[in-house]
Nucleic acid binder design. Structure first.
Lengths: 109, 109
DNA sequence: ACACTAATTAGATAATTAGCTAAATTACGA
DNA sequence: TCGTAATTTAGCTAATTATCTAATTAGTGT
């Protein structure tokens, strides 16, 4: 779970996943969307693969990556569940006197 | 968004948030649950605060932390939305099993 | 003012991560 | 087999992160 979260906490990798949402793509085609070198993209792919968020498959000289939506989905649900906000039945958000849970003023520094 | 994800990608910080789900707690009381030093916990708190996931409030010599559930909730929804799996109306997704969403072969290493 | 408690800041170190260039690998076509 | 293209690995540097101990700040009570 940490691995999935760490993987998607990087903007580049999130964008890769969003690109793959439209369908499978080669490493090169993906890399074209970013201003970093191909080896750098390759390590990003490796992180995504380690998190099991993508599948890779050789096709000739290319490598086609595809999104494993179900893994992403389950990770998100797992997190939601861990924090009591199960999205499919969002009801049990406040279960212990929600006094300090949400404050009116948000001071982001 | 990256900040929230990075914050919750750490197991210690996730546990802190889960503890705070039961209600506000002092820094010391939170720290007791972990095997790391208090200064280390303090930096974890700082990360959570920077992500706007917790609120802090002085009370005498103590600092009381409380969870900002709404921020966490919105971040999770934002991610879900970015990937087209809006949790509140999950319709196009199959969570029944681990059948790959679009790839036939899953080789998790 | 002084001592005590709670928490944070300062300063250091080790581990991880993102990025690069250059080299190696793999597959394909002539 | 040789050359080319696509991708990854190797090896490096810089930046970030997690952790520690020691010192500092802030509040409370005597």
């Amino acid at each position: 779970m940490s691995q999935v979260l760490k993987a998607i906490s990087d903007p580049t990798r999130r964008t890769v996943l969003e690109l793959l949402r439209k369908g499978p793509m080669t490493a090169g085609a993906l890399a074209e969307h970013f201003a970093v070198s191909k080896p750098t993209m390759s390590t990003h792919f490796k992180v995504l693969k380690a998190a099991d968020l993508v599948h890779s498959e050789k096709n000739g000289t290319s490598v086609i990556y595809s999104l494993k939506m179900s893994v992403l989905e389950e990770a998100l649900m797992g997190i939601a569940h861990a924090f009591g906000l199960d999205p499919n039945k969002n009801e049990s958000v406040s279960e212990s006197g929600d006094s300090g849970t949400q404050n009116p003023k948000e001071n982001r520094t």
